[in-house]
């Protein structure tokens, strides 16, 4: 009180710590609703069984990576791991974030506390990336159990999946701020399904004609797939730097956009 009368400014809690309290709030909620999280993990696992092994038995060793034949399941698995990181992050930021923003007005209450819009954006993105990472971790364990990991580089697959989770969480949060009604989420699915199917997920990108290869290389999941596939198969090359830069820049830009949009929506 004396400090205030003297005009001295009290200490401020650091931003990362402020954002962490929102992560804690989500963790409290999901302690009860853990089944919601678990369900999202099974989707890519089912694809691995159906396509990696089912279709894989027809494909044989027709797929090659850098000139070497590779078991089809080992080719598809890292792509599905990238997809699971994307799914976890986007489900959380698109649907749950929108619900909290527009329906339960959670952030109207949160912004009356020391937390600001940047803390809200960061907190939600971190939470979503945690969810995406959990999916990816579960998937990585399954891959190890099935003998689909061919390189010690795979140890970096988890941090790489966290980066993928961050990028898609940031993009999902930014996109959510433009959504007006639940119907708009059809658009999110219209974007996510082709990303899942065509990001060199099930076959090498070299199958596309040159121009189409360029288009695929502009989309984010392709870089996530390429990153994880390189790490779990051990085909490390300079292309990895491009993947990393792409994901970092896109995620950072989306985080910035999300904060600016939230500022406009919530602090009128």
């Amino acid at each position: 009180m004396i400090a205030i009368l003297a005009g001295r400014r009290p200490a401020q809690v650091p931003a990362a710590r402020r954002a962490s309290h929102l992560v804690e709030r989500n963790a409290i909620l999901y302690r009860r609703e853990w089944s919601l999280i678990v369900s999202g993990f099974f989707e890519p696992l089912l694809y691995l069984l159906a396509i990696g092994y089912g279709v894989g038995s027809l494909v044989g060793s027709a797929v090659t990576l850098n000139g070497h034949p590779i078991p089809y399941a080992a080719f598809v698995a890292p792509a599905l791991m990238a997809t699971s990181a994307m799914n976890g992050a986007v489900y959380e930021t698109a649907f749950n974030f929108f619900y909290k923003l527009k329906y339960v007005k959670l952030y109207d209450a949160v912004l009356a506390t020391p937390l600001g819009v940047a803390d809200v954006a960061l907190g939600e993105i971190v939470w979503a990336l945690i969810r995406g990472t959990l999916y990816a971790l579960g998937f990585l364990i399954v891959m190890a159990g099935l003998g689909l990991i061919a390189s010690p580089w795979a140890i970096l697959a988890l941090p790489a999946a966290m980066l993928i989770g961050f990028t898609f969480a940031a993009v999902g949060t930014a996109a959510s701020t433009f959504v007006r009604t639940w119907q708009d989420f059809d658009l999110v699915l219209i974007v996510m399904i082709p990303l899942f199917l065509f990001s060199a997920t099930f076959y090498p990108i070299t199958l596309y004609p040159g121009a189409l290869q360029l288009v695929v290389q502009l989309t984010p999941l392709y870089h996530g797939v390429d990153l994880l596939r390189s790490l779990t198969t051990g085909s490390i090359g300079p292309g990895l730097v491009g993947d990393l830069v792409y994901l970092v820049v896109l995620g950072g830009a989306a985080l910035l956009l999300a904060a600016v949009r939230l500022q406009r929506l919530l602090l009128k």
């Binding site: 009290p10 809690v13 007005k105 209450a109 009356a112 506390t113 020391p114």
Partner: peptide
């Protein structure tokens, strides 16, 4: 803002 809000209690018009 964050420093001030740390010392405020806010009851908004609509319950949040």
């Amino acid at each position: 803002g964050p420093r001030i809000r740390a010392r405020l209690g806010v009851v908004p018009q609509a319950d949040t």
